[in-house]
């Protein structure tokens, strides 16, 4: 065996082992536990049941799923509406301003998102920075109740996930050749028509990627609803966390995890298919 293939084998083995131990085995365990029954002292008893899955589809938990979807969707939409213009400007900028703006997106990644969540809580608090500023400038007469509301959770989600929307959008807008915009104008399209008919379709891969990257994690960031929503709203992430840590119902928590994983898998599949489709129509031959 020569050096190169030995190196290859070792590297691949390490990665494979890592995946086996930390991804595959835990997931199999979760999957297995989801079919077992709960036990007061030993967490689980080894008897097969589908009851955990039946419970998910009762109305209480269905509401949790629906609510989580709603929040994820709204967060995604706000991220897209805020992120697109920003990414568009960023892609068209040159030189120093661009670098500075880029740094502003990247820097938050250097801090734990939990700490950042506490940071934005300080801003939104009843006697926090935002309320103090608004009161001082006379825009409002009494402090806004922002923290521990659904709005706060949405703000927290958007705040944490916005960079995941901007970066893929930036990448696809950057690639967009300016000549298509000129061609659209040349053929009589005004700015809005050009945006809808040409710019959006041609940056669709970035839009889809950004949406997926915001939509999926927003299910799992359980500490944001916990901290900012005051644990008033129950979302999938919190539900799972509670089953494991508070209710000590591992089988049910596992069942919810499995369902969530399945939903994500379906969404990823949709994403994969749609980018394939966009790429196929986006390929340029000839020159």
């Amino acid at each position: 065996m020569n050096e190169r293939s030995l190196f290859k084998t070792i590297v691949i083995s390490i990665i494979s082992l890592w995946f086996l131990i930390f991804v595959f085995v835990p997931n199999i365990l979760v999957f297995a536990v989801s079919f077992l029954e709960r036990h007061e002292n030993n967490f689980v008893t080894f008897s097969f049941t589908l009851e955990n899955y039946q419970r998910i589809f009762t109305s209480v938990y269905f509401t949790v799923f629906a609510e989580s979807f709603r929040l994820a969707f709204i967060s995604m939409l706000i991220c897209l509406l805020v992120g697109y213009p920003f990414a568009y400007r960023l892609a068209r900028l040159k030189g120093r301003v661009k670098h500075i703006l880029f740094m502003l997106i990247i820097i938050p990644f250097w801090t734990s998102s939990l700490i950042r969540t506490y940071a934005i809580m300080i801003v939104l608090k009843t006697n926090g920075l935002l309320n103090k500023t608004l009161l001082a400038t006379g825009i409002i007469s009494e402090p806004l109740e922002l923290l521990y509301t659904g709005t706060a959770v949405t703000i927290g989600m958007v705040y944490s996930l916005l960079p995941f929307m901007i970066l893929p959008l930036y990448a696809s807008i950057e690639k967009l050749d300016k000549v298509y915009i000129e061609a659209a104008g040349d053929l009589g399209a005004n700015k809005i028509q050009t945006f809808i008919k040409v710019i959006i379709p041609l940056t669709m891969p970035g839009i889809i990627a950004g949406c997926i990257l915001v939509f999926l994690p927003s299910f799992c960031l359980f500490y944001i609803p916990d901290l900012m929503g005051g644990a008033k709203e129950l979302l999938i992430g919190n539900l799972i966390k509670n089953q494991f840590l508070s209710a000590r119902d591992w089988p049910f928590g596992s069942a919810v995890s499995v369902v969530l994983s399945c939903i994500m898998a379906v969404l990823l599949l949709v994403y994969y298919k749609s980018t394939k489709l966009v790429q196929k129509s986006g390929e340029r031959g000839g020159i």
Binding site: V179, E182, G185, D186, P201, V278, S281, E283, I287
Partner: peptide
């Protein structure tokens, strides 16, 4: 440009790929 009765054939053709 969208108001001018002038049209362009671009060097790269700029056909909309989608």
């Amino acid at each position: 440009s969208n108001k001018r009765h002038v049209n362009t054939v671009f060097q790269s053709y700029a056909l909309f790929p989608h």
